[in-house]
Design a protein around this nucleic acid. Structure first.
Lengths: 126, 126
DNA sequence: ATCTATCGTTTACTCAAGTAAATCTACTCA
DNA sequence: TGAGTAGATTTACTTGAGTAAACGATAGAT
């Protein structure tokens, strides 16, 4: 079951992941800091997310409070896998090659990356 | 100008990239090997692709022959960047970490990856 | 008791992708 | 010359994301 979210849906989820729970209103306000969005839009998207079992809600006073049902890692995983298979035919090195060429990469980032790869290599080795 | 293609559109582009040029018919047949697709569907998508300047066509006899106008690297680049910023907030190591956890990675692939990272590190270093 | 602000719900519209049937057009060959 | 075929074009439907107005219910304030 591939979890597929649109870009605004993802932003909503991100608020929920970082806050743990939030009302529609809170989400609207958080998202609006960056770029205004109508409250009703957020509500519609929350219902869509509920439809695909990504969130749930419970009443608190008269307000719905939403909670994420899926973990961030599940989503990022499926999105990344989808990209990988669709665009790079499964080649991680192909993807990374592109990214390294086209992005500004800080030395710290390279450090982390190297460490990751080194560790993983150990495992695969034997 | 971000180039955004749907998954079937991408498959069509891939045929064009690997063949250099192709008629709608050829594309239909190539794609149908994997999963049947109606010829008219392919034609519709080709027009969409033409609309977004991803391909062009010229007559050859009575047949339209299509050619890619954009390079594969341009597309993969924008898709990868989009993913990176949307889902991983720009963290390449975050993306790679996910992929390494969730994918089967062959030793050869790890090899390539290590090499890539090592080389890039050199550059960034100084 | 009524007004008002705030929720949630309903409804609807746009856009892109995907799908494909139906139709138009023109060439080939019998 | 007329039928059939292979191409292109037109048209249309479905789905999901995104957007938001309009409507309905209700708690609190005056």
């Amino acid at each position: 079951m591939p979890i597929s979210l649109g870009s605004v849906q993802l932003k909503i989820m991100r608020v929920l992941w970082s806050e743990g729970k939030a009302s529609a209103r809170q989400i609207t306000e958080t998202l609006s800091e960056e770029k205004p969005i109508a409250h009703s839009t957020v509500q519609t998207l929350l219902r869509q997310l509920e439809g695909k079992r990504a969130v749930t809600h419970e009443r608190e006073d008269r307000t719905f409070v939403f909670r994420p049902l899926i973990k961030e890692s599940e989503v990022t995983k499926s999105v990344a896998q989808d990209l990988l298979s669709r665009v790079f035919q499964g080649s991680i090195s192909g993807l990374v090659a592109h990214l390294l060429e086209s992005e500004e990469v800080t030395p710290e980032e390279m450090e982390r990356l190297q460490k990751l790869v080194r560790e993983k290599s150990q495992e695969v080795e034997k």
